[in-house]
């Protein structure tokens, strides 16, 4: 009786989890499926084609916006990771006047609605007479993703034995040498996680990019945003599908350890 109840609850949990996953993946599946659709309009599935994948390379604006997205994402990720990592170390190790202010500023992009940061950055670029473009986009993306890098690196530092750094200095390594030989390798998982997060945030950002982008620096999200009202051409579906497959591939390669772990566990179970 009790066991039966337990089983029913478990089964319901599984069904619910399945439905949630369906909810999360349904629109993605639609996008992927329609990237193979012969119809130009994303309404009815008429037949299978790979035509749109070829069309990507004819669509100059799409390619240009994709290129911009990648440039902005990579550059801002590198800058964010460098500033965020050394900043996290400094904030973790040292006390100084105004530390409370820096800590508070760090929480702002996490807590306040993105649109506020978007218009605030737009306003400041306006006074500084900076033309909106790739540069302002990069600055904006660094700004909103710095806290996330700082937080992930700091989490890693919490488990880091400070004597390890002292040991390196004790053995004759200067501060810079100590950082590269010892500190950085030890906090690397945190740094990589932070970088991944920054990359994801940058690629996915719509709101802040909306305010800080210029006519010459359209990113993919902005391109899509402008197309979406009238209707997106299936080559965008195709490109999105490629990007999704690409990111999954990157993650599978970088997190290869994780996946092989799962695999060995599964095979062990079978035996």
């Amino acid at each position: 009786m009790k066991q039966a109840k337990e089983k029913i609850i478990k089964a319901l949990g599984k069904i619910h989890a399945g439905l949630i996953l369906l909810f999360l993946y349904l629109p993605i599946m639609v996008v992927v499926v329609f990237s193979f659709n012969t119809s130009k309009r994303n309404i009815v599935f008429q037949g299978f084609t790979l035509e749109w994948y070829g069309k990507i390379f004819e669509n100059q604006r799409l390619l240009e916006s994709f290129k911009n997205t990648i440039i902005v994402a990579l550059t801002s990720t590198v800058i964010t990771t460098v500033i965020g990592t050394i900043g996290a170390i400094g904030l973790y190790k040292y006390k100084f006047k105004g530390k409370g202010v820096v800590d508070a500023l760090m929480y702002i992009p996490v807590v306040i609605p993105e649109i506020i940061l978007g218009i605030a950055l737009l306003s400041i670029f306006a006074i500084m007479k900076m033309p909106l473009g790739i540069l302002t986009l990069i600055i904006a993306h660094v700004t909103f993703s710095i806290p996330f890098v700082v937080f992930t690196v700091r989490a890693r530092l919490n488990g880091f034995d400070p004597s390890i750094e002292e040991a390196a200095m004790d053995l004759g390594a200067g501060r810079i040498r100590t950082f590269f030989e010892v500190t950085l390798p030890c906090i690397m998982p945190g740094v990589l996680a932070g970088a991944m997060l920054a990359l994801t945030l940058s690629m996915d950002d719509v709101i802040i990019s909306f305010f800080t982008t210029g006519p010459t620096s359209t990113t993919l999200p902005m391109q899509i945003y402008s197309m979406v009202r009238s209707g997106v051409s299936p080559d965008v579906n195709a490109l999105s599908t490629l990007i999704l497959v690409g990111t999954i591939a990157v993650v599978v390669i970088t997190q290869g350890g994780l996946f092989s772990l799962i695999k060995t566990k599964i095979t062990k179970k079978k035996i």
């Binding site: 004597s163 390890i164 002292e166 040991a167 390196a168 200095m169 004790d170 004759g172 200067g174 030989e181």
Partner: peptide, 16 residues
């Protein structure tokens, strides 16, 4: 520390 002719054995070992 890196300029001194002394070396330390740490309580937590502090191996890299």
């Amino acid at each position: 520390p890196f300029e001194r002719d002394v070396n330390t054995v740490f309580q937590s070992y502090a191996l890299f």
